[in-house]
Design a protein around this nucleic acid. Sequence first.
DNA 1: ACTCTGTATCGTTAAATCTCGATATAGCGA
DNA 2: TCGCTATATCGAGATTTAACGATACAGAGT
Lengths: 97, 97
Amino acid sequence: MDRDDILKALSHPMRVEILSWLKEPEAHFKSQEHPLDMGVCASQFERCGLSQSTVSAHLATLQRAGLVTTRRVGQWIFYKRNEETIRAFLKDIGETL
Amino acid sequence: MDRDDILKALSHPMRVEILSWLKEPEAHFKSQEHPLDMGVCASQFERCGLSQSTVSAHLATLQRAGLVTTRRVGQWIFYKRNEETIRAFLKDIGETL
DNA sequence: ACTCTGTATCGTTAAATCTCGATATAGCGA
DNA sequence: TCGCTATATCGAGATTTAACGATACAGAGT
C-alpha cells in the first residue's frame, strides 16, 4: 500500500469513476456473459467514451497502485476492487490529513 | 469542495507532507516570530529543500484546492489547514471509494 | 493453421506538471 | 525615498501524463 502511488492513481477523475462503478457493478454494467461477481470485463469500461488503449492504460494504473485485482478467464480479463487496499488507504489518508 | 481538484492537489507527496506538517506546527516548525496558531509563515516550508518559488507554487495549489487558508500579516503570509474542507473531502472520498 | 475477439503495448503528439533562477510586487522601517 | 525582507509571478527546460491509432499478443473456436 503505497500512499503516494494511490494518490497519483486517484488524480484522474476517470480512474476514480471506474472505482466507483465497481462498487455496484450490476448498476453500471448490464449485459455481460459471465457473472458480475467474477469482476467486470475490461471492455465494459469503454462506455466512458475513451478508446480501448486509453481505458487499458487507466486500468493498468489502478492495478499498479493495488486498487484493483485482475483475473484472466479465457480471453477475458475481469477487474475487481481490491477492498483491502482501498480500506487501508482510506484509513491511512484519514490519519495523515 | 471539488473532489477532483483536491485529489490533484494531493497527487504530489510534498503537498501531502505540507498538510501533515500543519497538523502539528509546533512539532515541525520551530522558531517563528509570530505565534504558530496564527498559521505557519510561508518561508518555513522551504525546509523541504525546494526553492522558494517552487514552495510558493505548491502552497498556491493547496490554496486553490481549498485545503489551506492564508492570512496576510505585514509582510508575512501565514498558512493554516482548512479543517472544514479537509473533513468534507475525507467524508466524500470515503463514501466514493 | 487460420480467424476472430479481447487486451496489452508501442509510437507519437499534445498538454500538463515540476523545478529553477530571475524578476516583480508588497509591506516594513530608516 | 531607499533598502530590506517576504512572497508571488514569469520564462524556460525537463519530465510526466493523457490520448489516440496501429500493432502485437493470447486464447477460443473452426
